[in-house]
Design a protein around this nucleic acid. Structure first.
Length: 562
RNA sequence: GCGCCCGUAGCUCAGCUGGAUAGAGCAGCGGACUUCUAAUCCGCAGGCCACAGGUUCGAAUCCUGUCGGGCGUACCA
C-alpha cells in the first residue's frame, strides 16, 4: 500500500522537476497494479496523459521520467518503459516477502490504511417498516449494508449501524386494523380487512396470540392502540430474528415516534422561514385548509410535494427530513444511507431539503446515499411479482432455507448494487452446491489442514519474518502468490472507499485460485527442508489470514475443516 | 411522456472510476489422485462488450441517439 503512494510521490517530483509549471497543479501521477505479469507488478500510465499536456511523445516522456530518477527506489527491483508509454515496475523479492510476512503475522488489518482514523460513521440500512417479515429484497440490502459497515470498520471508521422505521403513519394504522379484523375472526366474527391492508398469514397468527393473551374483549373501536402496538412489537420481533439469521445486529432501532415531539414541526418552521426568489418554501394548499406543500421546484426538484395533509398528518418525506437533521446533529463525520431503487426520488427530495437547511457542502461531504436495484425473483422460468400488502412475497427466511446456506445466500447477493439482479429460486439450490464461496472456504480449510500437518511434523512459522531469507521463496509460484497477496490491501481499501463490498468476492476468488495453484505445484511441508517449509508455511498463513479476514468483513464463516 | 439504473460467453456475474491480447464460476469437451483434503489443478471451446454515431494517441468504460428490461413519476413508506 505504502509503496504506491511513495512511488507516486517520487514520480510526481520528477515530473515537477522536468516540466515545472507546464503541468497543472491538480495533475495526479498514479501507480496501480498491473493486470498482466509480463508488464511488471505495478504500472504508471501517467506519461500517456502527460503527452497531451506537454505535447510530446509519451514514450519519450516516460523515458525522461525514468532517467531522472537517480535514487534506487525502495522495494523495486526493475523499471522499464513499455508499450505506448507505460512505466512498469517490478517489486523486489525481499519486499514481497516482507509484505507476506506482515499479512501472516498481523493479518489484513495491519496493512489496511487508516482511512477513517477514528472518525464516526453511521450506516442506515434495511429500515423496513414493521409490517411483516423481511423479504428477499431486504436481503440484498441487509447484506450490502452490513458488509459496507464492516468494510468501513476495517479501514478505521467507528461505525454505528442504525435501522430507522416509521411507526406513526397510515401504514401502522392499516396494520393494526388488519390485525383487529383477524382477531375478530378468531371468535367467528366477520372480518373485513381494510383497503390497502395486510393479508399475510402471520397476521392471523398474531391474532390468535393476542386472543390468548388478552381474551376476546378487544375491538378496533375501543383499543386501536392496543392492536397497533401489539402488531408493531410482533413485527419488530420477526424482523430482528430474520436479521439474526444473517448475523446482523443493529446498534440502534430508531423509531419515528422517538423523534423529539416537535422535531418535525420545527423543521417545517425552519423551511417556512426560507424564501427563494421571494417565495416561501412552504405554502398552503389552495383548497384544503391545513394542507401544506413544500416548494421542491425551487430546490431544483421536478415537482412540489405535500408535506402535511389536511388531516394534519405528515407525509413520509417530512419525518425523513427531520430524522436526517437528527442524524446530522449527532455529529457523525459520515452518514451512509442504503436504499432500494424505489427510494431514489424521495431521497433526492430529502437531500435537497437538507442542503437548504444545513448547507450543501455539509451535506455532500457527510451524507452518502447508496441506491441498490431490485432483485427479480424467477421461479419455474417466470418472474414473480411480490406484494407485502397482499401477503404475496418470498421471505428472507424462506430464501435462506431454499438456498440451504447462509454463507451462500450472502455470497449470491454480493453483486454490484446498481445492477439489477435476477435470482432464480430453482437454480438456487443447485448453484448453492457449486457456489464459489465453497471454493474460497475450501482454500481456508486446506491451509488449516496444512497447519495441522506442519505442527505434527514439528515445523512452525518463522519466528521473525524480517529475518527470513528471501531466497527460500524465489520460485515463480511463490512469487506469483506473493504478488497476489501484495495487492490485497490496496484492493480492499479501494473497495472500502467506493463502498463496494462485492469487490471482496473477486479478491477472495483470486486469492483462492492463487493458493490452490500454489498447493498443486509445491509441497509445503517437507521435513527434509525445514527452513524452506517454514518459509512456505508463512505464505500459506498469509493466505489463510487474508481469506479469513476478508470473509469476516463479509460476515461469512471461514471453516478449518470441510 | 419525463427522471434514474441496467443491457459483457449458453447461464450467473467481474472488469480497479479512459489504457497494453475482454475475465471468473457454472454448464460442455479432454487430461491429472501411492504424495499436506480431487469441494482441487491443467488444457480446449465459447464474445461485433444491445445497436448507431461522436470525443482522442486509446472506449466495455465518457457524450448523444435508438432498441430492450427494471424502478420511480402518491396526500403509501
Amino acid at each position: 500500500m505504502r509503496i504506491r503512494t511513495e512511488l507516486e510521490r517520487i514520480l510526481s517530483a520528477a515530473v515537477d522537476d522536468i516540466w515545472g509549471d507546464l503541468v497543472p497543479e491538480d495533475f495526479q501521477v498514479t501507480v496501480s497494479g498491473s493486470d498482466n505479469l509480463e508488464f511488471g507488478d505495478l504500472s504508471c500510465q501517467s506519461p500517456l496523459k502527460l503527452a497531451r499536456i506537454v505535447h510530446d511523445n509519451p514514450r519519450k516522456i516516460a523515458s525522461m521520467i525514468v532517467d531522472s530518477i537517480k535514487k534506487k527506489l525502495p522495494g523495486i527491483s526493475g523499471i522499464s518503459v513499455d508499450g505506448p508509454g507505460f512505466i512498469n515496475f517490478t517489486l523486489s523479492l525481499p519486499y514481497l516477502v516482507s509484505v507476506s510476512g506482515m499479512l501472516a503475522s498481523g493479518g489484513l488489518k495491519s496493512l489496511l490504511p487508516d482511512i477513517g482514523n477514528g472518525r464516526k460513521a453511521l450506516v442506515e440500512y434495511v429500515s423496513s417498516n414493521p409490517t411483516g417479515p423481511l423479504t428477499v429484497g431486504h436481503c440484498r440490502q441487509a447484506v450490502l449494508g452490513e458488509s459496507i459497515s464492516s468494510l468501513l470498520e476495517a479501514t478505521g471508521w467507528e461505525v454505528s449501524r442504525e435501522y430507522y422505521f416509521n411507526d406513526t403513519g397510515r401504514q401502522m394504522t392499516l396494520l393494526g386494523m388488519s390485525l383487529a379484523a383477524r382477531y375478530k375472526a378468531v371468535d367467528g366474527g366477520s372480518a373485513e380487512i381494510p383497503d390497502g391492508g395486510y393479508h399475510g398469514d402471520y397476521i392471523t397468527e398474531w391474532a390468535h396470540e393476542l386472543r390468548d393473551e388478552q381474551g376476546s374483549g378487544l375491538s378496533w373501536e375501543n383499543s386501536s392502540t392496543e392492536f397497533i402496538t401489539f402488531a408493531r412489537e410482533r413485527a419488530i420481533g420477526i424482523i430482528k430474528s430474520d436479521l439474526s439469521l444473517l448475523n446482523i445486529e443493529f446498534d440502534r432501532y430508531f423509531a419515528e415516534s422517538e423523534l423529539i415531539p416537535d422535531a418535525v414541526r420545527s423543521t417545517i418552521d425552519k423551511l417556512s422561514s426560507i424564501e427563494i426568489d421571494g417565495k416561501s418554501l412552504v405554502y398552503p394548499d389552495n383548497d384544503e385548509a391545513g394542507k401544506l406543500w413544500l416548494r421542491f421546484t425551487s430546490l431544483g426538484r421536478p415537482s412540489d410535494r405535500v408535506i402535511v395533509r389536511d388531516s394534519g398528518m405528515y407525509t413520509y418525506r417530512m419525518p425523513d427530513i427531520a430524522y436526517h437533521i437528527d442524524k446530522f446533529s449527532r455529529g457523525y463525520d459520515l452518514m451512509i444511507d442504503v436504499f432500494g431503487a424505489d427510494h431514489l426520488d424521495t431521497s433526492k427530495d430529502v437531500t435537497a431539503a437538507l442542503e437548504i437547511l444545513l448547507g450543501s457542502l455539509a451535506v455532500s461531504d457527510r451524507l452518502r446515499i447508496i441506491i441498490h436495484q431490485f432483485v427479480t425473483l424467477v421461479r419455474e422460468g417466470r418472474k414473480i411479482k411480490m406484494s407485502t400488502r397482499a401477503g404475496k412475497f418470498v421471505t428472507l427466511r424462506e430464501l435462506i432455507r431454499d438456498v440451504g446456506s447462509v454463507d451462500v445466500t450472502k455470497y449470491l447477493f454480493l453483486t454490484r448494487a446498481e445492477a439489477h439482479m435476477d435470482f432464480d429460486l430453482d437454480l438456487a439450490r443447485k448453484e448453492s452446491n457449486e457456489n464459489p464461496v465453497y471454493y474460497v472456504q475450501y482454500a481456508h480449510a486446506r491451509i488449516s489442514g496444512i497447519m495441522r500437518t506442519a505442527k505434527d511434523a514439528g515445523i512452525s512459522l518463522p519466528e521473525e519474518h524480517a529475518a527470513l531469507s528471501a531466497d527460500l521463496l524465489d520460485g515463480e509460484h511463490e512469487r506469483e502468490l506473493m504478488r497476489l497477496l501484495e495487492l490485497i490491501p490496496s484492493r480492499t481499501a479501494a473497495a472500502a472507499e467506493a463502498c463496494e463490498p462485492h469487490r471482496l468476492t473477486e479478491i477472495l476468488a483470486d486469492l483462492a485460485t492463487g493458493f490452490h495453484r500454489f498447493y498443486q505445484y509445491k509441497r509445503i511441508v517437507d521435513t527434509e527442508n525445514p527452513d524452506a517449509s517454514s518459509a512456505r508455511l508463512m505464505l500459506c498463513e498469509a493466505c489463510r489470514r487474508s481469506i479469513s479476514d476478508l470473509l469476516e468483513i463479509l460476515g461469512i464463516d471461514a471453516p478449518e475443516r470441510m
